[in-house]
Computed example of a mutant assay.
Amino acid sequence: MAAAPDSPPAVPVAPDGLPEVVDHVAVARLYGEPLFALPTDLYIPPDALEVFLEAFQGPLDLLLYLIRKQNFNILDIPMADVTRQYLDYVEQIRRSNLELAAEYLLMAAMLIEIKSRMLLPARKSDEGREAEDPRAELVRRLLEYERIKLAAAQLDALPVLGRDFLRVQVTMEQALEPRFPDVHLADLQEAWAEVLKRARLTQHHRISREQLSVREHMSILLRTLHGRRFVEFQELFEPERGAQVLVVTFIAMLELARERLLEITQAEAFAPIYVRLAYQPA
């Protein structure tokens, strides 16, 4: 029996029981079911489908993006191409946000002025020097902006408290903390003043003299050099014992050298000084 002429055409069914996607493309899936067309009563706000592919911080940021994206030499900017691309972007944002576009229009006027000045024949200055490139000021501003932008990116990459790490906070039970009596600062000052007062009443000032013998240090030097071939000059002194001992040790060394019991030698000027016994016992 043939099908009725007014019956709808059969929809192909996939093996999983769902209708096959028309042209292998579905608009969306609603609760697992493929949706082939948007509902006719669906309201979409005009700005809902607008997509900003790039976000710029200002006119200089946009110019730097256009130059770097196309690998232009920033010291030799092709003003015609850059100005045309810049104006296209300004026209797009002017349609949606006139207040935002106002900031970019001033730079657009500057680009047009630079392009116009480049079309005019170059005129030398009164001193006979070549006229400055109309793009020089723009290049200087772009390079300075790029340096600041790179520095800001490096600072942003540093760890930040609250974003990349948190402070460790340890909670202590109040019952475990020892309770000390409250002492005011004035009480500590009075107690310290009392200690100083008692110390001044009991202190004694004594002066003593250390007995240092040159002969004794001469014997010490002879014992130190005994059995050793050469000893460096500095090794015979003990700085930690004070200046008085150093002086007596030096006098003892000179006395031994005068009595020809020591030999003080030096290979050349500014070379280390060595000391040895003038005789070597068998």
Rank of each mutant, 00 (worst) to 15 (best):
Leu105Ala: 02
Ala48Asp: 05
Asn73Phe: 02
Lys124Ala: 06
Tyr86Met: 06
Gly17Glu: 06
Ala278Ile: 01
Ala102Lys: 15
Ile148Pro: 00
Pro45Cys: 08
Arg141His: 15
Leu201Asp: 10
Ala37Gly: 11
Thr171Cys: 06
Ala80Glu: 15
Pro9Arg: 13
Ile273Trp: 00
Tyr279Gly: 05
Met1His: 05
Gln244Ala: 11
Arg228Gln: 06
Ser208Gln: 08
Gly17Phe: 14
Glu263Ile: 14
Phe270Ser: 07
Phe270Lys: 04
Asp76Lys: 12
Leu262Pro: 05
Leu256Lys: 09
Val214Thr: 14
Phe36Ala: 14
Arg84Phe: 05
Ile44Val: 15
Asp61Trp: 02
Val214Tyr: 03
Asp61Ala: 10
Asp47Leu: 09
Phe52Pro: 00
Ser96Arg: 00
Ser7Val: 15
Asp156Pro: 02
Ser116Arg: 07
Ile220Ala: 13
Asp126Lys: 09
Val139Asp: 11
Ala191Ile: 03
Leu49Cys: 09
Phe230Thr: 01
Gly32Phe: 13
Asp187Met: 02
Phe72His: 15
Arg94Leu: 01
Arg68Asn: 07
Phe165Pro: 02
Gln203His: 05
Arg94Met: 00
Leu196His: 09
Leu221Arg: 10
Ile112Met: 07
Thr224Val: 03
His24Cys: 04
Val139Arg: 12
Leu98Val: 00
Glu177Leu: 13
Ala37Asp: 07
